[in-house]
Design a protein around this nucleic acid. Structure first.
Lengths: 141, 141
DNA sequence: GTAAGTTGGTTGCATGTACAAGCTTCTAGC
DNA sequence: GCTAGAAGCTTGTACATGCAACCAACTTAC
């Protein structure tokens, strides 16, 4: 097996483990999926709290059809509303609501806590992943 | 935003990008999903080419129900067969076939090539991810 | 040796995603 | 200003996955 191959297996394992923890915790405590959480984060950070559907798609790393449905879930939950784009009638803005901002802020605390907990847990279980994580953390100063 | 948070966003982006490329290429050239490919890899490497369903589940990082269906796809494609466990009548072995070994060996070449290509492409596009990758690669000597 | 609980695996159902096809609106070229 | 094509978004469909419920086989305690 090549070096890259083994490395990538580790990345995949790390990713699956941590994302699983994050998703489970967000769902359990806030009724929020990981994609919803991330979408809200991008909206909250955006100018005027709004993003074109296509911008949202690239931001969360999904294709447009997935984002249409993701946005629908946000609308249904009251975390965002649709707004028409005045200068391009094809365009749709997803705009975060106050409820959405509140929910995201709550969830963010859970997210951050869970993330560090999960990373630490992974590091404790696997020396190999621990060194991987150490390298990652020191890479970004 | 915390350091870990930004770091994890990068890991997620890296993961999505590379796994996407790997999956697309395996599907296009070999009609194989990423999970199928990885399952075949574990089976091929296992003693006698066989694994209990539960072992396969932990190996590929899916839960049991997903592995039941994954194995069914392998049976249907002729890449594996079911075998009963002689000493525990609850147990089922998934056993890789010659066709399965052949298919995996072919796909492995694609996988390896695509992996390095994708990693290099990512590194070229984003200096940030490039340094992340550099750290990862140097972490595992 | 039987009852209670555990383990291994499958099935029903809900969900999240991608791909392809479609509709509407915009833009270039003429 | 028309027309051909591109761009933005939605809808139809297929599918892989997780969770919960389930059945069958094993184990433990009495």
């Amino acid at each position: 097996m090549s070096e890259d191959e083994r490395l990538w297996d580790d990345v995949v394992a790390l990713h699956a483990r941590v994302e699983g923890d994050l998703g489970a915790e967000l769902a359990r405590r806030h009724g929020l999926g990981l994609s919803e959480y991330r979408a809200l984060g991008h909206l909250a950070a955006a100018e005027k709290g709004e993003l074109r559907m296509s911008e949202l798609a690239t931001a969360v790393g999904l294709n447009q059809s997935s984002v249409t449905r993701l946005a629908t879930r946000l609308y249904d939950a009251g975390y965002a509303v649709r707004d028409l784009c005045p200068d391009d009638k094809r365009g749709i803005y997803a705009v975060i609501t106050d409820a959405g901002r509140t929910r995201h802020a709550e969830a963010q605390r859970t997210y951050r806590r869970t993330l560090t907990t999960a990373l630490d847990a992974v590091a404790e279980e696997s020396p190999r992943l621990a060194s991987l994580l150490g390298a990652l953390r020191s890479a970004l100063v």
